[in-house]
Nucleic acid binder design. Sequence first.
RNA 1: GGGCUCGUAGCUCAGCUUGGUUAGUGCGCACGCCUGAUAAGCGUGAGGGCGGUGGUUCAAUUCCACCCGGGCCCA
Length: 1161
Amino acid sequence: MGPTLSGPDGRMGSHPARGPASGRARIWNRASGGHRRGCSGLVPHYGRTRDAAGSRRRHGKYRLCRRSDHGPTRRTSDGRTGSDLGPGCGVPGDRARSVCRCARRGGHFGMSYRNLPDSIAALEDEILRLWAEEDTFHRSLEAVKGEPEFVFYEGPPTANGRPGVHHVMARTIKDTIVRYRAMTGRHVTRIAGWDTHGLPVEIEAERMLGISGRPDIERLGVAKFNAVCRENLFTYKEDWEQLSQRIGYWLDYDRPYITCSPEYIESVWWAIGEIEKKGLLYLGYKVLPYCPRCGTGLSSHEVAQGYADRTDPSITVRFPLTGDPDRFLLVWTTTPWTLVSNTAVAFGPDVAYVEVAHEGALYILANSRVASLFGDGADVRREIPASELEGLEYDRPLHLAPSHPATTGQLLAAPFVSDADGTGLVHIAPAFGADDFDLGQRAGLPVFRPVDDAGRFLPDTDQVGGMLVKDADPLLVALLDKRGLLFREDRVDHSYPHCWRCDTPLIYMARDSWYVRTTDVRERMLAENAAIAWHPPEIGVGRMGEWLENNIDWAISRERYWGTPLPIWLCDACDGREVLGSYDELRERVGPLPNAFDPHRPEVDDYQWACRADGCKGQMRRVPQVLDAWFDSGSMPFAQWHYPFENQELFDRHFPADAIAEGLDQTRGWFYSLLALSTILFDGAAYRHVLVNDLILDGSGQKMSKSKGNVVDPWETIDRYGADVLRFYFLVSSNPWVPKRWDADALHETNRKLFDTLRSTYRFFSLYAGLDGWSHEAGNARKPAERQLIDRWLLSRVDTVAAGAARALDDYDLTGAARRISSFVQDDLSNWYVRATRDRFWASRPDSSEVLATPDAFATLHHALVTTARILAPLAPFLSDWLHRELTGESVHLARYPDRVESRDPELEAGMDDVRRLATLGRAAREEAGIRVRQPLRELQAVLPGGRSLEESLVDVLSAELNVKTVVFPRADDDIVRLSAKPDYGALGPRFGSRTPEVARAIENLETGQVQALRAGDRLELVLDGLVADIAPTDVAILEEASGDLVVQAEDGYLVGLSTALDEELLSEGRAREIVNRVQRLRRESEFAVSDRVRLGIEGPAIIERAAHEHAAYIGAETLAVSIEVGKEALAEFVGVHEVDIERGTVRIGLAVVRDDASAG
RNA sequence: GGGCUCGUAGCUCAGCUUGGUUAGUGCGCACGCCUGAUAAGCGUGAGGGCGGUGGUUCAAUUCCACCCGGGCCCA
């Protein structure tokens, strides 16, 4: 043992002398009675660790003993069972050390790395318990107190529904973002929020009360109704909290913001007050689907439930042009009653219009509709350009309502007009159609609504006063006919919305509505939006940008009950109005408020006061509406702090948000309300980055919905795979903003590929670290720069991957980060590093130059695992924390995201990439040659792109991987490669145009000498039919292809040539490996513990027996054989003799376990 | 009905911005290999011509138009 070895765990030869008594290792002392000289290889596993994982292993509760401990390289090959072969741990130079954990020697830290819990659920439960016990979340916040804030806003979910699997995705995205920022040292306030107002809550209350519709609610009383709403707000709060906590979404649930709390509402009032002060609040109309019988507007969701087929009149009416009684506009409608309120006619700017002569009159209509209205022989006089239509006036067909003084209307261009049906000219009544209303708003048209809340024409309406509007249709049609304006009358069968409660056909009708004049800040919103970093960007410029371009004023009032009451009081006598911005302002008017003041309806409706206008005797009464719930949630940046009444400083520190992340459906929802309110109130956007996610569809691409029964229960999946797997699946499978199909198989795959691999790698590490007594605290590894090449390679990869993941997360590319981590763990860490270095974890050689190999390997793997845990932590917080705690003693969520770059060695990484590519090709060549890897080969020729070569230690990695004795790098123009040229179409196409294919063909047929010339940098002239093509080296890609008698594989400039010649020496060695292979299989079939020592007897064809003799040491080492006997007699004493097949010859193998006590001496 | 978006192997996705040779990855499948992490791992192969139609171009999965189908939002 070299002097460098006498570290704190200086084991080796010193071990027997020191014994356990001097160590802090305890329990096993009693259990094993100290060091057991006769180590059997089976070590009872006692100690503090649980044996969870171990119990699943075949060797049960026994830890592995390592055969290297018994000096396998010195095993005899002469078949005798020399006593020195026994576990003579005292043999000088024998590495009797950790086998029994008796190697836990004095001064050591006594640490071991626990086995993983039995199941994913057990692991995650353990972590959840730890988080709860030590309050890791708040400790992580404490740890960065005073550090710069990373501002994150939690969009409040409606507490009204059960959280589903798509919420898990949304919450995973949010949590990953904020955990990452927290790990970069930012303080991230994360306050939970609840969206508590709005129609969903009311509908649930109606359901519970067994009532339906406004009349029912009014009968019951608003007080009772709202009480039920309030009681049932948090029916699902528990579900949300439990699910959020279970998936590791760290949020402050202790003091959430709740949109129906008095403080929150007061902040919202403040906002409305500010809007009023800025002159941006006004009373207008909003067109809603309206049930005349129930007297209520319906939400689009309700409307969607009530479509049914129905027959309506379909009439074409002629509108005479003003002052030109023989020219008419032809207008089509299925709602004759709305003609009473006709205000304009719209035409499509892109539709072609013509004038048709018919029975002495001229008619204007869309060209494409002429045939259907006038037949084939129509007398089309001329085309009418849009410029001529614009502003044209006509006489209104029905002039019955005194509230509608205008006798003429105008032609207006409207993009929504098509010529798909009707006449291409659309009758516009702003009070009775949403498109009509929007057009009217843009064009400044008045809204005439001669209809009351019950859907009846106002009494003063001529002819039809007091009639239900739909019932008036026949009368109105007859009237039109009488006046000679009815051009054509039909019936139409179509799908029409009905009230889902009472089946009454709905009408669209303008209702009183309070508006915020967002059009005043449209340009500001557009500018702010352009400055927001959208992920992905196209949603910002596309969906959001277009929506803002077409922004219309925001209708913020709802004719409902359970919501933030509008703080608007109107005088019932004059046009006075007061908009309150605080409860104090209310107190000033009505005196002290109750202690438990609740601003909700109906109490708030009772507050009235005398109008302050001079001489006015009126009373100020609150308007009946409540606030759009989007206004509530859009207020959360300030309302969560009860700003401006409290917490000014907190608000300042938390505005605007650095990031928000919600579903695509929030574009016109929360994303908009946040932007609109913050632009109006604070002249800036409320968020700088926004990460958008799309829906999760079911396995066949259908939207999940309760009615379809295709909703995935998140709990089921979490129980099965754990939260980490579910989280990681969402992140890794595709970018958040593409719709994701739910794929249960992919979950399984995620678990297997990343998590199983990582767990397995940890298990490997902890197993041998435990056996070896190695701990990261030992400090006995060399500096990274002094370690072996493959260690340095892994350390470099770790840093490269960590930096890449950090860069991706900085850019909100969660999927990119997830994929980097995943492929690192699988490809680099497990499948390359661990596989290539396995033997270093149990068999360092006694010569001094290599003696530190094992601590180096442990330290390297330890570092890689710790770093992996850290880079994985924001994405999969459970396993990463478990590993990190076990590997370092600290929660990963208190650690920093790795940002080291000092170990990066790009050249080394590139070199290893070369090795891996060559290894792949080499395996392919073996496959092609039909020579298994077990058969050693003499030589591999390898060519790298650009003629580079590999440094020696990389060559060693390659030759070990491919089981070849030597690797040589021939010059590329040696006879194993042949050159050819491939045309670069990108370079040729522009120069040769249609002759490109000919030139390309000529290039493909170049002779070797010509290609060599190109490769040397010369130009070539190719003479084609009537064309001389001047070919430069940049016009081609030069390929090296196989030639000669080697088995060759090549790709992308990489090439290997495998010499398949075999000689006796190679064959014998190959046979030895075959024997080992068979013995290992037999061991497994016999269910031996992997650490059992065995005796071997081998009998078979002469070539096999010779190989067994020649390579006995090797065979013994590989198979843990303490003795190998060869020949017929050798098998006599074996009970178990197995026949196997090697090279078509029968080989008989005797196999017996060497008993523990037999060797215990 | 309008705006946006997606449609690529049995399944899940990449590539399309800046057109260019035989369109990639993973799963699954078949065959083979390796194994002291092992209900793992590695290699090879089969499998699509990129939803359809038409256009632009020497050249289209990539650009354009229309159509079909899914999704979101708005009506």
